[in-house]
Amino acid sequence: MDLENQRRVLEFSEQYGAENVVVLLGAAEGEAAGLAAETVTLGDPTWAGPLAGVSLGLAVYHICEPEVKEEIDPDVYDEQISMMEMVLDVDDICNEMNAIRDQL
């Protein structure tokens, strides 16, 4: 996750409280989604940004995970996301996301 986004995530969690922030990812790959999820939960694994050594433990999901899909109007989901759902390796993304959340 780039340094600017890390800074913004940190600011939001300080402003609203970590328990009130949900991070929604749109990464195209499981590995990239997992890295971003790790950054906003356990801390920046590259030790380069504002979240290095900062474990925010934020709730984090990928837009293609079933938990998120259920919360969204099916028509909107169809219009905005369904094409990418066909393109992405959703199973791989879900596995990576679950693996990170399991560590919390």
């Binding site: 195209a28 790959e29 590995e31 990239a32 890295l35 094409m83 990418m84 066909m86 393109v87």
Partner: peptide, 17 residues
């Protein structure tokens, strides 16, 4: 680098649409 196969993703998007 975790950015995937960019051209392939584009062709899959065109196919999915």
């Amino acid at each position: 680098a975790g950015a995937g196969d960019v051209p392939e993703a584009n062709f899959k998007m065109i196919a999915a649409l």
